[in-house]
């Protein structure tokens, strides 16, 4: 059984079909890079995985639990599936420490003192342990994004989803965030990234999934897929983003 099974998923907004018959299996420890034009359904697919968006047909199963079964406790599921957004989405009124400890203390009942230690450990893994008492508005974009990653990691998820997490950052800050992902890839974390960082996808992605018009158009090992695209659409896309 794969950690994440996406089977024939279709997603529509009224008359607009966003995802058509999407299937994807992700094994534990894999790093999947989802690429494609804006509007191709990449982010929507990611948001369907942790139930932020509903699906109209098909199944999404995470570690044996079906996301769209009405009987599924989505809160429990989301505690095991971290997601990091393009816009960081830190809570601006809370310190870095409290941003990280809020969910563990509130949902898992971890004591404040232990939670602070948990926050410290999570911050060490993103290289920001000295910012534990800072507030989001005192951090750079790159630092905020690393805190957002630490916030997800502190829930000890089985699967991490990243939704274009470097798109709002300049190249230098992008570098510091990608280094955190690199570090994380060495710990064996299963990751699904929607990304425009082809270099990162090539070096660290175990697989690349190219989405086009709401379908999985082409997929395969990262280097092969990016090096020798089989479809004309992927070739056009790669030419557009690499130049």
């Amino acid at each position: 059984m794969s950690l994440l099974e996406i089977e024939n998923v279709t997603k529509t907004y009224d008359a607009l079909t966003v995802l058509t018959d999407v299937s994807l299996l992700v094994e534990t420890g894999e790093i999947i890079a989802i690429i494609g034009r804006s509007g191709s359904g990449k982010s929507t697919l990611l948001r369907c995985i942790n139930g932020l968006e509903s699906i109209q047909a098909g199944r999404i199963v995470i570690d044996g639990v079906e996301v769209n079964d009405p009987g599924t406790d989505l809160r429990k599921l989301r505690q095991q599936v971290g997601i990091v957004f393009q816009g960081f989405n830190l809570f601006p009124h809370l310190s870095v420490c409290r941003n990280i400890t809020l969910a563990p203390t509130v949902t898992k009942g971890i004591a404040e003192a232990d939670a602070r230690e948990l926050a410290r450990e999570a911050l060490v893994s993103v290289g920001l342990e000295d910012k534990i008492d800072a507030y989001p508005d005192q951090l750079s974009g790159g630092q905020q994004q690393r805190v957002a990653i630490a916030r997800s990691l502190a829930m000890q998820p089985k699967l991490m989803l990243f939704d274009e997490i470097t798109s709002a950052l300049d190249p230098e800050l992008t570098g510091e965030v990608l280094r955190v992902l690199e570090e994380m890839s060495r710990t064996g974390m299963t990751m699904v990234l929607v990304t425009h960082e082809m270099g990162f996808a090539r070096r660290f992605g175990s697989r690349v999934v190219f989405m086009h018009e709401g379908r999985v158009w082409e997929q395969g090992p990262a280097a092969d897929t990016l090096g020798k695209p089989k479809t004309k659409e992927l070739e056009t896309f790669l030419n557009a983003v690499l130049h």
Binding site: N50, L77, Q79, F85, F91, A103, V106, T107
Partner: peptide, 17 residues
């Protein structure tokens, strides 16, 4: 912002939380 509310749900918080 909606995005912060969504971040809260994504962390596994309940509606009241």
């Amino acid at each position: 912002p909606r995005a912060q509310i969504e971040a809260g749900f994504a962390l596994g918080l309940s509606g009241p939380q």
